[in-house]
Simulated assay, not measured.
Amino acid sequence: MIFLLILAIIFVLDMLSKHIISKRIKEGQQIEVIKNKFYITHIKNKGAAYGMLSENRGLLLLSSIGSLVILSKLFFDALKNGKSSLTKASLAMVLGGGLGNIYDRIFKKEVTDFLYVKYKKAPIFNIADVFVALGITLLFVKELFSKD
């Protein structure tokens, strides 16, 4: 199924990108990609966005696992019940990204973040975060304009 493949590709891209960053760029190092706009900045994050819940790893892990269980149910129900391709692709993106970050939280006790867009107080994020945000946005817009 194409949507399981999308999920798997996102997970692998996320894992691969984090591995490359961890091996090639020192933690704390910042590389300017687009002058004053975009940087590769290697950090380790023990919490959620902006380090939230870093002091309460158990709650973060529990809420992450709970969210992924619910998303998995929605995803497999969408596959089984013939939901729109956009719904299935959006859920695959969110689930693929979510699995990437939860894998790190469980097995590495921290998440590798490295993408930084210099804008006010923007967080440093990773490939998983990009797909989670993109999937949620697409699903929201689809539901907003859906005539179902």
Rank of each mutant, 00 (worst) to 15 (best):
I2F: 14
I2D: 11
F3T: 06
A8K: 02
V12L: 13
M15Q: 14
M15E: 12
S17Q: 03
I21W: 08
S22R: 12
R24T: 14
R24F: 11
Q29N: 12
I31H: 06
I31P: 04
I31T: 04
Y39S: 14
I40A: 04
T41H: 13
T41V: 07
T41C: 06
K44Q: 15
K44H: 15
Y50G: 06
Y50A: 14
E55W: 14
N56A: 11
N56D: 12
L61Y: 09
L62S: 14
I65W: 08
V69M: 14
V69N: 08
F75W: 01
F76Q: 00
K80I: 09
K83C: 02
K83M: 01
S85M: 08
A89Y: 00
A92P: 02
L99K: 06
Y103R: 12
Y103D: 03
I106V: 15
F107M: 04
F107G: 05
D113L: 10
K121L: 10
I124M: 09
F125Q: 03
N126S: 01
I127D: 01
A128Y: 01
V130W: 02
V130C: 02
V132Q: 09
A133D: 11
A133T: 13
G135S: 10
L138K: 00
F140D: 09
F140K: 07
K142A: 11
K147H: 07
K147R: 09
D148T: 05
